[in-house]
């Protein structure tokens, strides 16, 4: 570095690169940090929990360390019927979502409501917690929508995870959190975006997401390369579990031109009755059906309650 030019050059390089880092990282961070979480954003982060990609508590992405989304029809304390409401159940030991551990991420207004009225900071990972989404009278300044916030029902109502789970029918429990892990692990997002575009897509795929719809979600799994339809609102278009089941087992059963892979391996070893699933037999019968030797395809086995495909279907139908 003997030349004056090189000294000047390396300083100029530092200035140029530093300026670009400021403009692209430092300045946007103020805008992004100022975003106020919406009701959609609260639902997403409470449904998917701490993280849906690799995490120490779930190194092989088996859907561990995840909450359950439960439709509560009876008061868990008294057993009295009540107006149905979704509760987000974090069994003891489950990592709490980002908005609870870092309340500042909820944004102005929501943070105060969640801490003061919702008492979210009293939730403890060791004991588990049950969360609800509440609407306040305050309006979001730019959208004219009522501000929603998180409530720690374990603190405010005394609902414990065990009580809520005990009174709920299995069909009212959505394993959507674990399902998002399946969505990430199986690479669904390599072909299906979760981001309807701002300039079109309104008619077919529904409204594009708004600022505040993502706070606390990780990864967002927007996807960049669409080889199948956008899925952000798929549960509003098609919430049939039977259709989803057939489609995941072999997409060509319900859509002959689909290029989606078969996800039959997510059924695991056994079906809902605990009987071993004979994939080999199923495939050879399906091949006969394709060749026109038999007129109907073989029946798709009903998945077991604790199978990975159940998680994934729960996640997909929950994408409203």
């Amino acid at each position: 570095m003997n030349f004056r030019e090189y000294r000047i050059g390396s300083r100029a390089f530092g200035v140029a690169f530093g300026l670009s880092m400021s403009i692209t990282l430092f300045f946007p961070s103020f805008d992004l940090a100022a975003s106020i979480v919406s009701e959609v954003g609260l639902d997403k982060q409470l449904t998917s929990g701490w993280d849906s990609g690799w995490q120490i508590a779930d190194p092989l992405l088996n859907g561990l360390n995840k909450p359950l989304k439960v439709l509560v029809r009876k008061d868990p304390k008294t057993g009295e019927p009540m107006e149905p409401v979704y509760a987000y159940v974090y069994p003891a030991g489950t990592s709490l979502p980002n908005g609870v551990t870092h309340t500042a991420n909820l944004g102005k207004g929501v943070e105060e409501l969640s801490v003061k009225q919702g008492r979210v900071t009293e939730a403890k990972k060791e004991n588990g917690a049950v969360f609800l989404i509440k609407k306040s009278d305050q309006l979001l300044t730019f959208e004219d929508k009522p501000l929603s916030y998180m409530e720690n029902a374990t603190a405010t109502k005394g609902w414990t995870p065990d009580e809520v789970l005990k009174q709920a029918a299995d069909s009212d429990v959505l394993h959507a959190g674990s399902g998002k892990t399946m969505f990430v692990r199986e690479g669904c997002w390599w072909c299906h975006t979760l981001l309807p575009e701002q300039t079109q897509d309104w008619q077919v795929f529904g409204a594009p997401p708004m600022l505040g719809d993502f706070n606390g979600e990780s990864p967002t799994a927007f996807g960049s390369d669409r080889k199948g339809p956008d899925l952000l609102h798929v549960g509003s278009r098609n919430a049939s579990r039977e259709w989803m089941m057939l489609h995941f087992f072999n997409p060509r059963l319900v859509q002959p031109h689909s290029i989606m892979p078969r996800f039959d391996y997510l059924w695991g070893e056994v079906d809902a009755d605990g009987k071993k699933i004979d994939f080999k037999k199923w495939r050879s019968e399906y091949d006969e059906y394709r060749e026109g030797k038999i007129t109907t395809p073989p029946d798709v086995p009903m998945y077991a309650k604790d199978s990975e495909i159940r998680n994934l279907i729960d996640f997909v139908v929950n994408l409203k």
């Binding site: 140029a16 880092m21 692209t24 997401p209 927007f222």
Partner: peptide, 28 residues
Amino acid sequence: WSIVVFYSTPAAHHLMSAPLPEWLKSFA
């Protein structure tokens, strides 16, 4: 120099349809 100055700044143009700040998208 134009690589250092121009190529290091348009990252946001990969997310033109996400709700990022509009100034950032236009700048990118």
